[in-house]
Design a protein around this nucleic acid. Sequence first.
DNA 1: GGAAATTTGTTCGTATGTATA
DNA 2: TTATACATACGAACAAATTTC
Lengths: 90, 90
Amino acid sequence: MERDGPRFPPGTRKLVYVQVADEIAKRIKDGTYPPESRLPAELEFVAEFGCSRESVRRAVQELRDRGWIETIKGKGSFVLPPEERPARSS
Amino acid sequence: MERDGPRFPPGTRKLVYVQVADEIAKRIKDGTYPPESRLPAELEFVAEFGCSRESVRRAVQELRDRGWIETIKGKGSFVLPPEERPARSS
DNA sequence: GGAAATTTGTTCGTATGTATA
DNA sequence: TTATACATACGAACAAATTTC
């Protein structure tokens, strides 16, 4: 996922995990992944985005930190309903 | 870990990975990390010492070369009992 | 109940790019 | 120019929780 890409000034390139996090966030916002639903498994995202599991995990952690999802070991990550999300988390 | 630090005559400053290796060796010697025990993960050392993973890995490799520890992929690095260590490895 | 598959969690292995001395 | 050091990213193996058959 554009690991190399064009040469940007240092610190300007969009990191892979940010790209992934942004895409998943977009899908949550537009209802592709509705509240209460389970997100695709990490390895599914790996296959879809063609990136590493580490990048997917960082992206998921980002969304977790924003309060958009919760993750349960052995089960998956679940979209939190908007009312359970922190106010300033868009 | 003192990447910048005071100015030494060229080639005199103690390298980061050497500092880390010395510190871990000290802890093995004083029993902080006893025989058979698992060392903290690389990323834990990164957090504690505030250096890069590369420097930690170099340090760990140094101890491996000295015969103080063995490393198993996916599991960690383990302190070898003194009797399994080479004679001249202090 | 039990074994296998699924899924997240953890850890080491490797490659590459950038900055600096 | 070379060696050190940091950061990002991908790969692989193992561990633990859960689900499925």
